[in-house]
Amino acid sequence: MGKCPYCNKSAGIFKKHHKECEEKYNRAKANITKTATENFEDLNNLNFDQLKELAKESYVSESEYQDIISESYLNVLDQYLDDGVLSKEEEDRLESFMKNSNLSQEVFDKNDSLSKTVRASILRDLLNGDEIKNRLKVNGNLPFKFQKSENLIWLFQNVELFEQRIKTTYKGGSQGLSLRIAKGIYYRTNSFRGHPVKTTKIVPIATGIVALTEKHIYFASSIKNFRINYNKIITIDPYSDGIGITKDGVTAKPQVFKNVDGWFCYNFIKNISE
């Protein structure tokens, strides 16, 4: 006989869990999510102690409960960002929700929601023409030498750098034979190399750190280090988990930075360079 993973009691012959336990578990998770989301802006009707007790009684673990609360926070944050800007009032509501939950900041940043809130507030300051403040606390030394007139705005770690490579091959070439067709006339087949065919692919280059300042985007790794002035960027493409950049220059190769917030980087670079 197996044990029910919810109540830890015998599940019976040929059973893995009690149906009623599973239903209670799923119902509690749905209720916690609904209650937290619907009362997000009215904390007087949101009792986190009751939600936590409901989770405990319904076999929802502490880590699962924390994930539900932080996910509710992130869902509301995404709703606030539907118009592209996080207002000061919306930021205050998010902060109040987090404080009233009695959960640590680390819980809310497991899914990057807290950091996303800070980045959204940085964009608001930028759009409003306010001073952009450094809101990061960096432990240790950074591998960058910033200019005197610039400050660190944001930092992304474990960023994968990719670059575009173009390979040219020729189709329809000859074997290099020289055939005599008539007196004094030769058809040199090796002079006809066929037509060039170019293939493009994105190849991984390095994994490192990306830093954003008021003037540059920096990249540092064990094998490649560089900085790009925002004014030298001619194209910028945002992705859900990265950003693509092409800088000015005949030999410049398109570069893709994976594991950065594409939404933030795109809006920050576009607005600060205008």
Rank of each mutant, 00 (worst) to 15 (best):
Y6G: 00
Y6F: 14
A11E: 04
G12Q: 12
F14Y: 07
F14L: 10
K16V: 08
H18T: 02
E20N: 07
E22A: 10
N26F: 11
N31H: 08
T37A: 07
E38R: 07
N44I: 06
N45E: 10
N45L: 13
L46F: 10
N47C: 01
L51Q: 08
K52P: 00
K52N: 03
K56G: 05
K56V: 05
S58K: 02
Y59L: 04
V60N: 00
E62P: 04
E62L: 10
Q66S: 07
D67I: 12
I68W: 03
I68T: 06
I69W: 02
S70G: 09
S72A: 14
L74T: 02
N75G: 08
V76K: 12
D82S: 14
K88R: 11
E89W: 03
E91F: 14
E91D: 14
N100M: 13
N102R: 12
N102E: 15
E106V: 05
F108R: 04
F108I: 05
N111D: 11
K116L: 09
S121D: 11
I122M: 04
L127T: 14
L127V: 15
N128P: 01
G129C: 06
D130W: 11
I132P: 01
K133W: 08
V138P: 00
G140Q: 06
G140R: 03
G140M: 05
N141T: 14
P143N: 14
K145I: 04
Q147F: 10
K148G: 15
L152E: 09
I153H: 00
W154Y: 13
N158R: 02
N158K: 07
N158Q: 07
V159R: 04
V159T: 09
E160P: 02
E160T: 14
E160D: 15
E163F: 13
Q164N: 15
R165K: 11
R165I: 13
K167M: 08
K171E: 11
G173Q: 06
S174L: 04
S174Q: 08
Q175D: 06
Q175A: 08
L177T: 07
S178I: 14
I181F: 01
A182G: 03
I185Q: 01
Y186V: 14
Y186N: 13
Y187N: 11
Y187I: 03
S191N: 13
F192P: 03
P196G: 01
T199R: 02
K201G: 00
I202A: 01
V203Q: 08
I205Y: 11
T207M: 12
V210M: 12
V210S: 05
V210W: 10
A211S: 13
A211P: 09
T213M: 08
T213A: 09
T213L: 09
A220D: 02
A220T: 06
S222C: 01
K224N: 08
F226G: 10
R227V: 12
I228F: 00
N229L: 10
N231V: 01
I233E: 01
D237Q: 09
P238G: 04
Y239L: 11
G242A: 10
I243V: 15
I245H: 06
K247I: 12
V250D: 05
A252F: 12
A252E: 15
F257W: 07
F257C: 00
K258R: 15
K258C: 14
N259L: 03
N259M: 02
W263S: 07
W263C: 03
C265W: 00
I269H: 06
I272K: 00
E274L: 05
